[in-house]
Structure formats: structure tokens, C-alpha cells
């Protein structure tokens, strides 16, 4: 069979053709492609790794940020509460102080009023007594102008004394 007998010419040219093909591709083809493909695969791997890392970092950063925010919020409420507390305290204190002050002022005022009143009373009494003495003096002077009246007085006084006894 002709088909199963390898032909010398074709074998020869096949060797030549394949040698040329292999040489050309070995020299200019495959190394560049292999380098390119491997390089690109490495690049993609690196890119994926980088993206994963970035995602992890982003996640952790987000978590951190969240925790920071939560902490800050807690802090804020604490501060607000503290401020509130302080506010009430200050107000209380102020109120207390004001009350105290007011009381003090009132007390002082009362004290001074009492003193004034006492003074005024004293003065009044003095004045009244002076006035009374004056009046009495005047009355006595008038009454005691005549002898009869004097003796009547003495009599009445004596009567009183007797009655008392």
C-alpha cells in the first residue's frame, strides 16, 4: 500500500520544515509568550492578593472606624450626661448659694429691721417718756398750783394706801 510507505522526500522536507518552524518559534515565539503569560498570571495573582489584602484592610479599617464611632458616641453620651449632671449640679449649687445668700440677706435685713425697730422703740419710748414727763410736769405744775388740790391729792393717795393695806 502506497499510503503506508513513508515517502523519503516528504520525510526530508518534514524534517526541514519542522526544524525551521521549531527554531523560529523557539527563538522568537515561545519565550516571549511564556514570559508574557507567566508575567501576566503573576500580575493577576498579585493583583488578586493585593485586592484581598486591601479588602481585608478596608474591612478592618471599617471595623475600627465603627468601633471608634461607637466609642466616640459612648463618649459623647457620657460627656453629655456628665454635662447634664454638672449643669444640674451647678444650678443646684447656684440655687443653694442663692438661697443661702438670700437667707443671709433676709436674716441680716430682719436683724437690722429688729435693731431698727428696737432702736425706734427705744427712741420712741424715750421720746414718749420724755413727753410723758413733760406732760406730767406740766400737769403737775398746773394741778399743784393751789394748796387744796395738793392736799386732795395727798388725801387720795393716802386713801389708796389705806385701801391697799
Amino acid at each position: 500500500m502506497e499510503l503506508f510507505k513513508p515517502d523519503f522526500g516528504l520525510i526530508f522536507w518534514m524534517f526541514v520544515a519542522f526544524a525551521i518552524l521549531f527554531f523560529v518559534l523557539w527563538k522568537w515565539g515561545w519565550p516571549a509568550i511564556m514570559k508574557g503569560v507567566e508575567g501576566r498570571a503573576d500580575l493577576i495573582d498579585k493583583g488578586v492578593e493585593y485586592a484581598q489584602n486591601a479588602k481585608e484592610q478596608l474591612d478592618s479599617a471599617r471595623q475600627q472606624a465603627d468601633s471608634y464611632i461607637a466609642e466616640a458616641r459612648k463618649h459623647q453620651t457620657e460627656i453629655l450626661r456628665e454635662a447634664d449632671r454638672m449643669k444640674t449640679q451647678i444650678i443646684d449649687e447656684a440655687r443653694e448659694a442663692a438661697q443661702k445668700e438670700a437667707r443671709k440677706v433676709m436674716e441680716q435685713a430682719q436683724l437690722s429691721i429688729q435693731q431698727e425697730r428696737k432702736q425706734a422703740e427705744l427712741q420712741f419710748r424715750n421720746e414718749v417718756s420724755a413727753l410723758a414727763v413733760d406732760i406730767a410736769t406740766k400737769v403737775v405744775r398746773n394741778e399743784m398750783a393751789d394748796e387744796k388740790a395738793q392736799s386732795r391729792l395727798v388725801d387720795s393717795l393716802l386713801d389708796d394706801m389705806e385701801k391697799q393695806n
Binding site: D7, F8, G9, L10, F12, W13, M14, A17, F18, I20, L21, V24, L25, W28, G29, W30, A32, I33, K35, G36, V37
Partner: peptide, 29 residues
């Protein structure tokens, strides 16, 4: 007999096409 027969020319055409295709990729890279 090392004539350029139909098959030999076919071989050369195949070689040329493979070289063109592969060097095209290599050049791209």
C-alpha cells in the same frame, strides 16, 4: 526525490501560518 510536492508545499504553508500566528502573539506580548 526531494521534490516540492503538494504535501511539501502544504507543509510550508502550515509552517508559515503557524509562524505567523505564534509570532503575532509573541509580538503582542
Amino acid at each position: 526525490d526531494i521534490s516540492i510536492t503538494k504535501n511539501v508545499l502544504g507543509l510550508f504553508i502550515a509552517v508559515a501560518l503557524v509562524i505567523i500566528s505564534i509570532l503575532n502573539v509573541a509580538r503582542w506580548h
